[in-house]
Amino acid sequence: MAFDLASLRAAMARHGRVTRVVIAATHGSTPREVGAMMLVWEGGQSGTIGGGALEFELARLARAQTAPRRFSRHVLGPEMGQCCGGAVEVLSEVYTAAELDAMADRPVIARAVSPKGEMPLAVSRLIAMERAQGILPDPQMIEGWMVEPVARASRALWIWGAGHVGRALVEVLAPLPGVQITWVDTGVERFPEHIPVGISVLPAQDPARLVGHAPREAEHLVLTYSHALDLELCHALLTHGFASAGLIGSATKWARFAKRLAGLGHAPDQIARITCPIGQPALGKHPQMIAIGVAAEFLNPALNAGTKRRSSFA
């Protein structure tokens, strides 16, 4: 877990005042680990610290919070009526845009949970270790100071297409930590009204022209409304380069695409890098079923193992 500045900034831009609630310490059996967090605003929230009575109560307190920072301890059994026998210490914070800007270049965010005192030596050592060796600390509370690494996207995922499957994929994949999703389609009207926090939306009349702007280490999922556009995107991706690429389609569609891509000058071993169909066909054709299968492969590429499976996705 890490401090996701981008998601917090996006939530504030959309909802105004947002309270970030993070588990600072745990004792005994608890629903979530240190660093688990949620963002709370009037009328909504995102993320989770474990659900149930604890989350409900802390969300209520967050909406009523007037101070910039609030620290509290909660015993889950006697206080919340939860079966977990442990206790949690929770830090709830409200930031300004200026404060987030000031933290933008920090790899580690450390702050006192109560009125500020001198930074403890143990915290200073963690920060120095990151500067000297690039080693990020785990989220933890040390001598009254909360320490969290700043979230950095380690994987870039481009999703081409905002139809039913594209929307289902974004809903499933958006909450994953460490993933920066860029979502492309031919017009703004193709996207849903509500976009998950942290998603970069790029409407473009000619999506294939955007392929050149994707990092060569990016991963791609191609699932537009048009087979012709799908083919154009596959051609552009093979020309540009990618870490991985998946195409929604049937075995028949893939056979035709492979032949046409060969005709465009791509070698068989390069064409074979595109996975088609995506997901787990045994799960079914419903958009959410496809999304679940694709997400499983995204989290565990060994499930795919580079093989081409037969499917009737079209």
Score class of each variant (00 low, 15 high):
Lys116Gln: 10
Gly117Ala: 07
Gly117Pro: 00
Pro120His: 04
Pro120Asn: 04
Leu121Lys: 14
Ala122Phe: 00
Val123His: 14
Ser124Ile: 00
Ser124Cys: 10
Ser124Tyr: 00
Leu126Ser: 01
Ile127Tyr: 00
Ile127Ser: 00
Ile127Cys: 11
Ile127Pro: 01
Arg131Asp: 12
Arg131Gln: 13
Gly134Ala: 04
Gly134Lys: 03
Leu136Thr: 05
Leu136Phe: 01
Pro137His: 10
Pro139Asp: 08
Gln140Ala: 13
Gln140Thr: 14
Gln140Ser: 09
Met141Gln: 15
Ile142Asn: 02
Ile142Phe: 13
Glu143Tyr: 08
Trp145Phe: 11
Met146Ser: 03
Met146Glu: 01
Val147Ser: 05
Val147Gly: 03
Val147Thr: 07
Glu148Thr: 07
Glu148Cys: 04
Pro149Tyr: 08
Val150Cys: 11
Val150Phe: 01
Val150Leu: 01
Ala151Asn: 04
Ala151Asp: 12
Arg152Met: 12
Ala153Ser: 14
Ala153Lys: 09
Arg155Tyr: 06
Arg155His: 14
Ala156Trp: 00
Ala156Tyr: 02
Leu157Arg: 05
Leu157Pro: 05
Trp158Thr: 15
Trp158Tyr: 13
Ile159Leu: 14
Ile159Arg: 09
Ile159Trp: 05
Ile159Cys: 03
Trp160Asn: 07
Trp160Cys: 10
Gly161Ile: 10
Gly161Cys: 11
Ala162Gly: 08
Ala162Pro: 11
Gly163Arg: 09
Gly163Met: 06
Gly163Trp: 06
Gly163Tyr: 06
His164Phe: 04
Val165Pro: 10
Gly166Phe: 04
Arg167Lys: 15
Val170Trp: 03
Val170Asp: 02
Glu171Tyr: 01
Val172Lys: 12
Leu173Phe: 08
Leu173Pro: 01
Pro175Arg: 09
Leu176Asn: 05
Leu176Tyr: 02
Leu176Ser: 06
Gly178Asn: 09
Gly178Leu: 04
Val179Trp: 03
Gln180Phe: 04
Trp183Lys: 02
Asp185Cys: 07
Thr186Asn: 07
Thr186Ala: 13
Gly187Tyr: 00
Val188Glu: 13
Glu189Leu: 06
Glu189Asp: 14
Glu189Gln: 14
Arg190Ala: 15
Phe191Ala: 04
His194Ile: 12
Ile195Asn: 01
Pro196His: 05
Val197Gln: 07
Gly198Asn: 10
Ile199Phe: 03
Ile199Leu: 05
Ile199Ala: 06
Val201Lys: 10
Leu202Ala: 07
Pro203Asn: 09
Ala204Arg: 15
Gln205Asn: 03
Gln205Trp: 02
Asp206Ala: 12
Ala208Arg: 11
Arg209Met: 10
Leu210Pro: 13
